[in-house]
Amino acid sequence: MPAVLTTASKLACVHQGTVRATAGQHTLTVDGSPVLLADDLGLAVISGCIAQAPCVRISAVTAGVSTTLTVGGRPVLLATAKGTTNAGTWQASDAGQTKLEAA
């Protein structure tokens, strides 16, 4: 099973930009970092994208949403998470933790 993503996880666009997501919940944490939920990426900021038309926001999550673990009825994100941005694609590159996994 893949690891659950937290605010300590590394997410990036295909052009090497860093995705910075803020957790909308603080009930479930791993090593003090809140777990990210699928809808947390709607407000994520992308910085450092080197594309001519840079990625600045996430448009969609297309994979890596848990089917078994939720917080307040909202699914958590997994290390297999990926999707689209306004100018390309993004994916999780490092879950940043190995203690909590889900399907």
Rank of each mutant, 00 (worst) to 15 (best):
residue 26 H to M: 13
residue 96 G to H: 08
residue 36 L to V: 01
residue 92 A to N: 02
residue 40 D to Q: 02
residue 36 L to S: 01
residue 64 G to S: 07
residue 21 A to G: 08
residue 49 C to P: 02
residue 16 Q to H: 13
residue 29 T to R: 14
residue 3 A to G: 00
residue 80 T to A: 12
residue 41 L to Q: 13
residue 61 V to H: 00
residue 30 V to G: 02
residue 44 A to K: 14
residue 35 V to H: 05
residue 79 A to C: 03
residue 37 L to I: 04
residue 54 P to G: 02
residue 61 V to Q: 01
residue 30 V to L: 05
residue 65 V to H: 00
residue 36 L to M: 01
residue 68 T to D: 15
residue 9 S to Y: 05
residue 35 V to G: 05
residue 57 R to N: 15
residue 13 C to A: 00
residue 84 T to D: 14
residue 32 G to L: 12
residue 24 G to F: 10
residue 85 T to W: 02
residue 101 E to T: 15
residue 8 A to T: 09
residue 40 D to A: 05
residue 24 G to W: 09
residue 66 S to P: 04
residue 59 S to E: 12
residue 32 G to C: 15
residue 88 G to T: 02
residue 38 A to C: 03
residue 28 L to D: 09
residue 89 T to D: 05
residue 22 T to R: 11
residue 13 C to W: 00
residue 31 D to G: 04
residue 60 A to W: 08
residue 79 A to I: 02
residue 87 A to L: 00
residue 25 Q to S: 14
residue 96 G to Y: 04
residue 88 G to N: 02
residue 71 V to E: 14
residue 2 P to Y: 09
residue 46 I to E: 01
residue 24 G to L: 09
residue 93 S to D: 03
residue 44 A to C: 14
residue 23 A to M: 08
residue 64 G to Y: 08
residue 19 V to Y: 12
residue 67 T to E: 13
residue 79 A to Y: 02
